[in-house]
């Protein structure tokens, strides 16, 4: 991997984490409300996957801030959305869980566990139908692999040989329930094995995630059908800000944090790419500044006008409502 790309991966992870800490702080201060699902600890997965899957559509879940940023959506637009402002990427109507930007081929932002998988499969059908071969990536947690939508999606994607990349972020917990308490195995790729090739990757290693997703994208573009990538990862925070994370022991959290993706990549930059501490520090400062700027922007941005309430129920000209 060239140095610039390695540096970008590091920068995106650092910027993503800074974004999440800022979101956490402003949630505590009351500037952000609702459900806030932080991605701290899982940066390698979010950044590695988005930077590898450069072309094609992405359907993700409610834990998607860092993915949206790595996809190219501005931190200002994402933070303003969390603040519920008009300048937000969904104009304050979606919030943290619903970030959509078709100009970046990024479709959320879905808050029904597994509910976006059939949408991703349908989109893959449309892209194939139209001869647009970039393919579609659906990102979901281990918890989603126990639902019916997941199995329906595996079946249809395989039967139709669709260019679908199923990326499972296995952080082992569905809110507070450990996956092995509700599923018969630790690795969920096993569920996909009858339908498609599966790959396992260390989700705490951004380079490994990048390579695995790049290869998987090559695979789906060949027209052989879907592929399943499972990335083992670890979230440092609770499921959302309302989850005190009391179901994981101090030892478990310590083991988890020993695999920290940012520290790990920093070491790679220092040892394998000959980068010095000053350069790394300047990257970190730059990332923090960008997030500080995004927070200032979000805080100062305007509230949506009351008229926004009834806009976008239907398309322009079709906006009927019960009078």
């Amino acid at each position: 991997m060239d140095k610039l790309l390695a540096e970008t991966l590091y920068y995106e992870m650092v910027r993503g984490r800074a974004f999440e800490y800022a979101a956490k702080e402003h949630y505590m201060q009351g500037d952000i409300s609702g459900f806030l699902h932080l991605d701290i600890g899982q940066e390698a997965l979010s950044v590695g996957a988005m930077k590898a899957f450069t072309k094609g559509d992405v359907f993700s879940t409610y834990r998607e801030h860092i993915m949206a940023l790595a996809r190219g959506i501005s931190p200002k637009a994402v933070m303003a959305e969390l603040f519920g402002k008009e300048a937000g990427v969904s104009e304050g109507k979606g919030g943290s869980m619903h970030l959509f930007d078709p100009s970046h081929f990024f479709y959320g932002g879905d808050a029904i566990v597994g509910g976006h998988l059939p949408n991703a499969v349908g989109c893959a059908y449309a892209r194939k139908f139209r001869g647009e071969e970039h393919g579609v990536m659906a990102v979901f947690g281990d918890g989603a692999t126990n639902g019916g939508a997941f199995f329906e999606s595996l079946n249809i994607a395989a039967a139709q040989k669709l260019p679908m990349l199923f990326l499972c972020e296995n952080n082992e917990y569905a809110i507070g329930t450990k996956i092995t308490r509700v599923a018969p195995f630790e690795k969920q790729a096993k569920k996909a094995e009858p339908y498609m090739p599966t790959v396992e990757v260390d989700g705490m290693d951004v380079l490994a995630v990048y390579e695995a997703v790049s290869e998987a994208q090559h695979y789906i573009q060949k027209g052989h059908g879907p592929i399943f990538v499972e990335a083992m990862t670890c979230r440092y925070e609770g499921h959302s800000m309302s989850d005190p994370n009391s179901y994981r022991s101090t030892q478990e959290m310590a083991l988890c944090k020993a695999r920290d993706p940012i520290e790990r990549m920093k070491k790679v930059l220092l040892e394998q790419y000959g980068m010095d501490d000053d350069t790394i520090e300047s990257l970190e400062t730059k990332a923090q500044n960008e997030i500080d700027e995004a927070v200032r922007f979000a805080a100062e941005a305007a509230e949506p006008a009351p008229e926004a309430l009834t806009a976008h129920v239907f398309t322009e000209g079709g906006n009927h409502a019960l009078s």
């Binding site: 059939p118 349908g122 449309a126």
Partner: peptide, 12 residues
């Protein structure tokens, strides 16, 4: 219906 939603997003 879920696939139809995705198809519509994908231009159909």
């Amino acid at each position: 219906v879920g696939n139809a939603v995705g198809m519509a997003i994908g231009g159909l």
